[in-house]
């Protein structure tokens, strides 16, 4: 570390300040560019939402979204070893009617065919069973990173009311690796919010 600090001491400070600014700006820009890439290249998957406990309604200015595929039976994963809370799982989904529905849950990515997609999620519940709390339970609660949708102040209540009446669906863009981002939010099948790339 002393060698590194000595080395840095020989570089003009202006360059080091510039390097910090460039790196931090690049990191922030990467967050946005990466999301845009998912939006542009990902497969469109329509997901049905579920009502949420009224006490969790509007936190700040974002709507809490809970999906049909957020609560699933563990299936073949039951009683197999997990990594505890937060274990990464992959949900294989296929179109059923107007929305995608879960087919199976896996610990590793599996091959998909036809219209099937693989959505990567984390077990927020149902991965801490067994004597050492390190096995999958019978039912899983999953998060896919698309559970929050930020809206302009005061517009959240309307969406939540519609959501609790089962009228809200979300079109997510999903990459081959299973990453999902929200692309459109629909009420009664009509787009209410459309996410631009940038």
């Amino acid at each position: 570390m002393n060698g590194l600090l000595d080395f840095l001491g020989r570089i003009p400070k202006v360059l080091l300040f510039a390097a910090v600014a460039i790196i931090q700006v690049a990191l922030i820009a990467m967050m946005v560019v990466d999301r845009a890439r998912v939006l542009r290249d990902g497969t469109e998957v329509t997901l049905a939402t579920r009502p949420v406990d009224p006490r969790d309604f509007l936190r700040g200015d974002y709507v809490v979204l809970n999906y049909e595929i957020s609560s699933l039976p563990a299936g073949t994963l039951k009683d197999t070893p997990s990594s505890g809370k937060g274990t990464v799982v992959y949900v294989k989904a296929e179109p059923k009617g107007n929305v995608y529905a879960a087919v199976s849950v896996h610990k590793e990515p599996v091959a998909v065919t036809g219209n099937e997609v693989l959505i990567r999620g984390r077990a927020s519940g149902g991965a801490t069973c067994g004597p050492d709390n390190m096995s999958f339970c019978e039912d899983l609660r999953l998060r896919f990173g698309i559970e929050s949708y930020f809206v302009p102040q005061g517009e959240g209540r309307e969406i939540e009311n519609a959501r609790n009446q089962g009228k809200v669906t979300v079109v997510a863009a999903v990459t081959r690796a299973g990453r999902a981002v929200i692309k459109r939010l629909l009420i009664d099948g009509e787009p209410v919010y459309q996410e631009p790339l940038y």
Binding site: I28, M31, V32, R35, Y62, R143, G145, I146, E147, S148, Y149, F150, V181, I182, E195
Partner: peptide, 11 residues
């Protein structure tokens, strides 16, 4: 703020 703007509230 970028997380909020672009709905990146994953982790």
């Amino acid at each position: 703020l970028v997380g909020q703007m672009y709905h990146l509230a994953d982790d």
